[in-house]
Design a protein around this nucleic acid. Structure first.
Length: 270
DNA sequence: CCCTCGCCCTGCTGGC
DNA sequence: TGCCAGCAGGGCGAGG
């Protein structure tokens, strides 16, 4: 499940093989994921040079010298396969570099997306236009989140998944950050105390930073582009651990919030 | 505007 | 062994 650390890991992996390279060939095996691919995708990318790779929230950005940026989202099951031995089912898009290296965008569940955006207009690209700050950036502070959550009655768990509040968190890291900050997932967002928010912001930054350092988490269909596996999943305190003991003596519980599983420790999250 | 809910998609798991 | 319901969930639109 690619969230911010997994996308960051992916982008870093792609940069190693794509930065400065020319895109020699583009093959489309199935021209739609969540949405149809841009009709001019092959034309724009073929022959372009990759100038830089970047990430915004859970989106990867491939900047080219044609003033266009390819924006990809990995959805639930997306991953880039670098130098695959063979093209496999769900390799929807395949890029071949001038050096002869192939890169395949594989997405079994097809929740991902591929868009082309004018590089100068990236900030007004639909999803980016209303997005909150990067959680690892300087703009993400207790003061920001306090203002963004003021008066909100929805549970803090759901608010942290809202990319307009803070951009890049998904189910796993929200559960882990709330656990670290000792905040109940179902507490009304606008009623979280200032000290708790002052714990929450560094908790989010720390869990993301630690995961990036570990190469992300791996579950089923996520892998780093290199084929190596991220090992942060071994560090989860609550996610996927229903019924297991918490070091505080309590037991990890699960309930469904907004159609998604929330994992938490009722003994330490108040 | 705020909030909740259901849908999209496919592969894997567990129960019988 | 085979079948099938249930589950995973980010983003987005519908509806209250």
């Amino acid at each position: 499940m690619p969230e911010l650390p997994e996308v960051e890991t992916t982008v870093r992996g792609l940069a190693r093989v794509l930065q400065g390279e020319r895109i020699a060939r583009v093959m489309v095996n199935r021209a739609d994921l969540r949405r149809p691919f841009p009709p001019d995708l092959v034309q724009v990318l073929t022959g372009a040079h990759v100038t830089a790779l970047a990430r915004r929230a859970k989106y990867g950005l491939i900047h080219t010298d044609r003033a266009m940026t390819m924006v990809f989202h990995l959805g639930m099951s997306g991953r880039w396969r670098i130098d695959p031995k063979a093209i496999e089912k769900h390799d929807h898009l395949v890029i071949e570099t001038g050096a002869g290296l192939r890169l395949a965008l594989n997405d079994a569940r097809r929740f991902g997306s591929v868009d082309l955006v004018e590089t100068s207009a990236l900030e007004s690209f639909g999803p980016f236009a209303v997005m909150g700050p990067e959680p690892l950036g300087d703009a993400f502070t207790p003061a920001h989140i306090k203002a963004a959550l003021a008066g909100r009655t929805a549970p803090i768990k759901q608010m942290l998944l809202d990319q307009r509040i803070v951009a890049g968190l998904g189910n796993i890291y929200v559960c882990e950050a709330l656990y670290r900050a000792r905040i109940r997932p179902d507490k009304a967002a606008g009623r979280i105390s200032k000290p708790a928010l002052e714990r929450l912001v560094p908790a989010i930054k720390q869990v993301l930073t630690e995961s990036i350092a570990a190469g992300g988490s791996t579950i089923r269909d996520y892998a780093q582009p290199s084929g190596e596996l991220g090992y942060f999943a071994a560090s989860w305190s609550v996610y996927g651990r229903e019924g297991e003991p918490c070091p505080c003596g309590g037991k990890v519980a699960r309930f469904v919030q907004g159609g998604r599983s929330t994992f938490w420790c009722p003994a330490c999250q108040k």
